[in-house]
Each structure stands twice: as C-alpha cells, then as structure tokens.
Design a protein around this nucleic acid. Structure first.
Length: 624
RNA sequence: GUCCCCGUAGCUCAGUUGGAUAGAGCAACUGCCUUCUAAGCAGUAGGUCACAGGUUCGAAUCCUGUCGGGGAUGCCA
C-alpha cells in the first residue's frame, strides 16, 4: 500500500518509466539561469544552418544589398523544392530584398548565386524566373549530412542540451476524482511529446502535474466515497439513500461521483476494517483516501502510455504552505483588487477579459482562481524562462484571468503560454462513441491504451494540430495487419534492422568514409532521401518554435515512405539492393544510408514516445 | 452582443511563418512477392482551398466583410 503522503510531497520526482532523453536535472538545483549559455558551439552547425549562414552572408555582403539589407536571418533561408528541375534547395531571398531596395529581383538573384557558387557545399546555383535561386548541393554536402547523422546518432537533430532556455510545462493535471478519459489521453501524449521536442531543441524542460485536491471538489469526492464505504460495510440504513434517476443522495448529501470505481476502491479499503472503524472516519479522511487512490490510478494509467511527470504539485499542500495568502497579499499590494458588492474582485479586464472576476465571494470563500494564481506565483518563484500550460479548449476563458493574476502578483505574464487543446472523439465501428459521466460510459484512457497499444495511441493523438478536433479511429488504430501508419513506420525501421543483421553476417558494415559513400550514392532516390534526412533538425526547431507536435509523425511517415519506395525498387531492379556481393564499396555506402534512415526514424519516434522495434513479424495476424 | 478556433479530395486532416504543378492517411479501382521482412510498392481516380472583395511579381496562407460549425464569456471547478 502506498504511503498516503507520497503525493503530498511537493516536487516528488516520479519514477521514470521509459527512455526519456536529456532531462536529468533536478528542479531544485540552482542552474536555471535566465541568460543563454554560449555552449551551442559544442555542436557543429547542421548543414542547413551552414547554408543559411552562407546565404545570409551573401545577402549582406553582396553589393546589391548594401549595408542596410532589410532582411532578417529568419527570412533568408533555403527551402526544399517540389520540382527536381529546381535543384536540391531554393531560396526566395532575392525577391525579399529586391523590393525594399527597389532593385530587379533577377539581378539580385544573380549576385547571390555568383557568391554562393564559391561555397564548397554548393555544386551549382541558378536563377529562375521571378527571382528564385536554385542550388544543387555538392557531394561533400551530402557527405556532411551522412556524417552528421553518424556522429550525432541518437542525438542527431538535437540542439546542444540546455542551450536555449528553461521551460516549466504543465499538462494533464486531471482531477483526482476519477479515472482519466480519452481527452486526457491526448493531453498526456501531446504534453509529453512537446516536452521531448523542446528538450531536443535545446530547452531544459520540467513536466508538472497540478493536483486539484482541495476545496469543494474534494469535499464532494469525500461524500461520495464515504457513501460507498458505508455501503460496503453495511452502515447504510433504509431511507438514507434516494435516487431519482438524475441524482443520488445519501443522508441528504449529493453523491457527485457515482461511478463504479469508487465502489471498487471502497471494497478494497474496508476489507480489513470493522464497521465501527469506518463509521468513525471523517469526511476529510474519506476524501483524502479517495484522492490518493484516484491519483495512484492516474499515475498508473499515465505510466501505461509511457508518460511520467517530474513534479506533482498538490493544491492542498500549497494552501497549507500559506501560498494562497501570499498571493492575495501580493495582489492587494499591487493594487490589482477592489471591493464591490461585498466581494473582492480582480482587475482582469486589462488582460483581455470581458469583465473583472471575483476572488472572494460574498460568503467569504475563495473562488477557484485564487489557488490557481497562487500556484502560478509558486511556479514563477522557481525561475523558469517560460511557462507553458496545456488546457482543454473548454477553458478558453481562463488564460486572461490567469495572466491578470500573474501580472497582479508582480510577475511577467508574457512568460506564460497557454495552449488550448481541442476535443477528441472516439470512433468505433465507424460511429462516434458518445460519453456521459453520469451514465458512467465514458471512454477510459486505460481502455484505449489497452485496446490500441501505447504506440498506436500516441501516434494518433499526436498526428493532428492541437487546434483541431480530431476523431480517434479505434478501428484503424487496432489494425495491426493492414495499412496503419504507425506500423508502417515501425516496419520500415524493423526492415532496416533486419538488413543490418544480414549485412553483419556478410561482413558488410556501414561505410565510415562519408565522402566516399556520398560519391557512390548518386541515384535520385538516394539523393532525395539524404536531403530529406537533412530536414530533421529544422523540423524539430520549427516544432519547438510553434509548440506543435504533429509535424513529427508527418516527417517520420514521409521518411518511411521514401525508404519503402527505395526498398521496393530492388524487387524489380536488383542493382538497387543494398547488399551487393559484387560491389562491397557500394554496399557499405548504402548500408550507411540505411543506418542513417533507421537512426532518424528512431529519433523521430522517440520524440513521440513511440518504440522503434528491431523486429516485426506477421504472426499477430493469426490471432484473429 | 463580444472574443478565440475551424471551414482544403468521398472521410479524417497536413500544407515549412506569402513561393514555382495544393499533399498524406483511410476508403475505391488496376497491377507487383524464386532472391536484403508484401505490416510493403507502383499506377488510376478524386479539388471553384466555404464565399466575395483587397494587398503584390505571386495568396490555401496576410487584411476586410459574409455564410456555416465549435468553444469561451458564473460570486461553478
């Protein structure tokens, strides 16, 4: 039995269930400085960064642009081309600078191209119609990409650890009043993956779960659990219980949480206790017992999908520490409050709210906002550079109030970013599954994970932009033997592992000479793949910047597609086989490419918290 | 009423912060397993990017307006 105080300890470090990268720091250490550390030099810039620097230099130094080139580093970049005729990469930089300079874009492009041609990474640079500069990369550039992946291995695509800024990421924070549902599932997958992405992008991130274990909600939980325990030991008298179909009451008290899970907890709880012992317990004791059991279940469910938090912060503990009073004092001191109609108000209108909000009601009790402000005050006192919260979209009215509260206690509310995650619907047998809490037929997170598996669940939860609702298709997610994107990607990975094994047997190892290998990897599909691999770091960077998670599955699926296409080409044309006994040098070069693809797929899956299996067999088909 | 999000293939959704011929998955149709894993691949079909204006070399993307869907606007949490 778990120590009930376990969750009450603030900042208790949770056991980490799975391969969580980078984040080895302790929250309480003194290293969360607010300035950037200049240790990005520990890593060579990725190819694309080198090219973009060269482009920026060309823009700055070419005489056409002059000193005052009105262009930022962000905008002068190379992007992929859709049409192979346009080369490997293209930039629109000339068109961007031509306008403010009043110059002809073609002329500017010519000047840029001339300068870029001297770069050893660039084979050729050409100017196209409106003012594009299309470049073709040198063999050396391709070698550079392969070398970056071989050197970086599991860290390929990552920025230098802890090189950017620290972030406190709060998500899920499910109420400890019952099991988590499918909506929490999306929150858990998105938050955990966002954490991995931010870490990969060089941030120091702590994942935090806020436990709403105080106030009226907990009291309601206590009443419900008390009823179930009384029921379990036979303390319920006839006439104590009323059920009108809408609402159950026990001894005149509403039972807000009628779900079966409390019955199960109650039976377990009373097992070794006598009737008198149960009858002597207070509401608060029942509440805390139920809270601990619900929380343990939540942690267990999260663990089943591979999600663990660095900190669990208890609202109750926060209240006991006096944090709520301190927050209120700070709000008063900063003149953010006023009395009206017998209540205490917070000036939230300055932060986009329609009207000011009440902090303390006429009856003297506090609204839920106050502890939340206190909690964020507490967060800020831990001195992170940024604070990110993932809330459900139904909390859309909340961020302005929170901002007002944060500013009100004297902190910088601009450091807070709130992501509103939209709803998820479960599709089963082609139809939306409706759920209602009252009927108890809501879709439990644990059931989804059990049925679809953690990998497939996470994949689908991540593959949509957080601003859009999406339908989780259980019929598709559980298809192990058909066209299921997550298995397709894992399959590509497993295939390469199998190939690597085959290579070992025949003494074909990945080439260690990237330049020699790149010179042999000249087929269009091979070049396309290497180019695609080079986009991995920028994909991470962009995802971190936009705080989005759905680019990762899209990227990794695209890579798997490329590999599968390459693989199948060898069916009709054996010269495309990786292992070619007649040409050891080519075999080793292709093995290097194969390993680069495998590594990058694996790194991408890791960002999603999805496993990269070494083997996949079709035996599962026989189960059904 | 005000604010936010969404509207793109039959369905679910991407679209790299304004770029060249708008994509993926699923569903449909046609092919491909003697040889490194067919959970794969190739091909076909599928579109007035809700609508109307505007900004410019160039708009699915930015601005304005309209229509449609969802959410937020409690002295609830």
């Amino acid at each position: 039995m778990r120590d009930p105080s376990w969750f009450c300890r603030r900042y208790a470090l949770a056991a980490c269930a799975r391969n969580r990268p980078v984040n080895q720091h302790s929250i309480d250490d003194d290293s969360h400085d607010t300035h950037r550390r200049a240790d990005t030099s520990r890593r060579m810039p990725y190819l694309k960064e080198q090219l973009n620097s060269a482009l920026l230099a060309a823009v700055r130094h070419s005489s056409v642009a002059g000193d005052g080139a009105a262009i930022t580093a962000d905008r002068a970049t190379f992007g992929p081309t859709k049409n192979p005729a346009h080369g490997d990469l293209a930039t629109n930089a000339a068109m961007l600078v031509a306008k403010p300079l009043g110059r002809n874009p073609i002329e500017v492009a010519e000047a840029l191209a001339a300068r870029l041609r001297s770069n050893p990474l660039i084979e050729n640079a050409e100017v196209a119609k409106p003012g594009f500069v299309n470049i073709r990369l040198s063999t050396h550039a391709y070698a550079t990409i392969l070398q970056e992946i071989a050197t970086g291995a599991a860290t390929y695509g990552n920025a230098a650890p802890n090189s950017v800024g620290s972030i406190l990421l709060e998500f899920v924070s499910a109420n400890p009043t019952g099991p988590m549902h499918i909506g929490h599932c999306r929150h858990a997958a998105s938050g955990d993956s966002l954490c991995r992405i931010l870490q990969a992008a060089g941030h120091k991130v702590a994942k935090e779960f806020y436990i709403n274990d105080a106030g009226v909600q907990l009291e309601a939980l206590g009443r419900s659990f008390r009823f179930r325990c009384h029921e379990a030991v036979g303390l319920v008298q006839p006439g104590d219980v009323k059920d009108d179909g809408e609402q159950i009451t026990y001894q005149g008290e509403a039972i807000s949480y009628p779900g079966d899970y409390l019955k199960e907890f109650a039976e377990d709880f009373v097992a070794n206790k006598c009737k008198e012992e149960i009858g002597g317990l207070t509401h608060a004791q029942f509440a805390w017992e139920a809270r601990n059991r619900n929380l343990a279940q939540i942690v267990q469910d999260l663990a089943a999908m591979g999600v663990a938090f660095d900190n669990y912060v208890s609202e109750q503990a926060l209240r006991e520490s006096g944090a709520v009073d301190r927050a209120l004092d700070a709000l008063h001191k900063n003149g953010m409050t006023y009395e009206k109609d017998g209540a205490l108000w917070l000036k939230t209108q300055a932060f986009g709210d329609n009207e000011d909000r009440v902090l303390r009601k006429q009856d003297g009790s506090l609204t839920y906002m106050v502890p939340d402000i206190a909690y964020h005050y507490d967060k800020y006192q831990r001195h992170f550079d940024r604070y990110i919260n993932i809330f459900g979209a139904d909390h859309g009215g909340y961020p302005p109030r929170l901002r007002a509260g944060i500013a009100g206690v004297g902190e910088d509310e601009k450091k807070l970013t709130v992501l509103l995650l939209r709803l998820v619907f479960l599709i089963k047998n082609g139809k939306r599954v409706k759920f209602s809490k009252r009927a108890g037929n809501f879709v439990a997170l644990a059931d989804v994970v059990e049925e679809a598996g953690a990998d497939a669940t996470r994949w689908f939860m991540l593959c949509r932009s957080i601003d859009s609702e999406f339908e989780f298709d259980m019929d598709l997610a559980t298809q192990h033997s058909s066209h299921n994107p997550v298995f397709k990607v894992q399959y590509a990975h497993a295939r390469i592992c199998s190939l690597t094994q085959k290579g070992l047997e025949q003494h074909i190892l990945p080439s260690t000479d990237a330049n020699a290998a790149a010179a042999l990897l000249t087929a269009p599909i091979e070049r396309e793949m290497i180019l695609y691999l080079a986009q991995f770091p920028e994909m991470i960077e962009r995802s971190a910047k936009e705080l989005s998670v759905h680019n990762v599955p899209a990227y990794v699926l695209g890579l798997a597609d490329l590999w599968n296409r390459y693989w199948t080409m060898a069916k009709s044309d054996p010269s495309f086989r990786v292992i070619n006994p007649d040409n050891k040098a080519l075999s080793e070069a292709r093995m290097l490419l194969a390993n680069s693809v495998r590594q990058t797929i694996s790194n991408g899956l890791t960002l999603m918290g999805i496993t990269s299996p070494q083997r996949m067999t079709r035996e599962e088909e026989e189960e059904s």
